[in-house]
């Protein structure tokens, strides 16, 4: 049985150390600027921290994958070029990119460094993946969370590169790299600034009756009864009204997390080369629990035992979990 790589989130140097010590085969991280898709205040790495963190990870045999996975806008390309140059200097094991211009720069400048295609590139067909592999020598694609396990198995036969799938964490519903919802409301762009539902625009308005209305900038995203816990206002996880839905409903998706722990053997069998845990914005405690649990699960599967699965429900959004599109086409 092929041994899948466990790819773990590192939002900070401390989280990186935690993930490495908890058994990550690889960690992914980004610089403190718009070059990565989790450009949140208090997250990510300064150049000095990146250099030290790469050295730390390598000493313990863990790979570092550098996410440079937003879309540089015309006139700002130097920031992305610099991020690639720094990553190369510090010895990262791969770049995770989404933009064609950035991919081309990596290929021309650092042909010896592995290129991974970010989920932000939304390559969801053999043709799209083959395009990136042919043009830029992409070695691995991070698949959008929209395919069933049989579809992944079929896909694996049709592409010349490795497959990485998300197995745990945030369950994004929109095609990554194609969402301007945050920019429509806040003026900050997910693709250009690496921002989704920025905290500075988040409001929890407490009503006289004790209920809470959540807002992103000017728009109400949800409303919670006094006994409900108010969730973080993300546009695609909010409740709205449609003409035939007079009662507020989750128009896109409920606040729910992806958890594929039950599908790991099937995913390995389908030909998945790497499992990705989402959550660079989450706490060290989350990283420790999720990484340890999946380390144990993957190792027990590889040893031919029943997977030992810790209860991860406490780590999920709204304490709800799903196997999403991986389980059934009905999800669509």
């Amino acid at each position: 049985m092929k041994r899948p790589e466990l790819v773990c989130p590192a939002g900070t140097p401390a989280a990186l150390r935690t993930a490495v010590e908890a058994g990550a085969d690889a960690v992914y991280c980004g610089f403190q600027n718009a070059t990565n898709a989790r450009n949140f205040p208090g997250l990510n790495f300064t150049p000095e921290e990146m250099e030290a963190s790469v050295a730390f990870a390598h000493k313990l045999g863990t790979k570092v994958l550098l996410a440079i996975n937003t879309f540089p806008t015309a006139g700002r390309f130097d920031l992305w070029r610099d991020a690639v140059d720094m990553g190369a200097r510090y010895g990262v094991d791969a770049f995770i990119v989404a933009d064609i211009g950035v991919a081309d720069y990596v290929k021309r400048t650092y042909p010896e460094i592995r290129l991974h295609l970010s989920v932000q590139a939304a390559a969801s067909s053999p043709e799209a993946i083959r395009y990136y592999a042919r043009e830029f020598g992409v070695k691995r694609v991070v698949l959008p969370r929209i395919l069933t396990v049989p579809e992944i198995k079929q896909l694996a036969r049709e592409i010349p590169c490795e497959i990485e799938t998300f197995i745990f964490g945030n369950h994004g519903l929109m095609v990554e790299g194609r969402c301007s919802l945050t920019n429509y409301v806040t003026g900050l762009s997910t693709n250009m600034d690496g921002v989704c539902s920025p905290a500075a625009d988040v409001h929890y308005d407490k009503q006289p009756d004790g209920s809470v209305t959540t807002r992103l900038a000017d728009f109400t995203i949800d409303s919670f009864a006094p006994n409900e816990q108010a969730g973080y206002p993300t546009i695609c996880k909010g409740r709205y009204n449609a003409p035939n839905r007079p009662d507020a409903y989750y128009a896109f998706e409920e606040p729910i997390s992806l958890n594929l722990s039950g599908l790991l053997p099937a995913l390995i069998e389908a030909g998945v080369d790497a499992f990705k845990i989402e959550g660079r914005q989450r706490s060290r405690a989350y990283v420790k629990s999720a990484v340890s649990a999946f380390r144990t699960a993957v190792d027990s599967i590889l040893a031919g035992q029943e997977p030992q699965l810790a209860d991860l429900l406490a780590l999920t959004e709204g304490q709800k979990q799903t196997e999403g599109a991986f389980k059934t086409k009905k999800w669509r």
Binding site: F71, P72, T73, A74, G75, R76, F77, A98, D99, I100, G101, V102, D104, Y105, A121, G177, R178, N191, M192
Partner: peptide, 8 residues
């Protein structure tokens, strides 16, 4: 996603 002159 065509955001810059290099991609273009």
């Amino acid at each position: 996603n065509i955001y810059n002159e290099e991609t273009m």
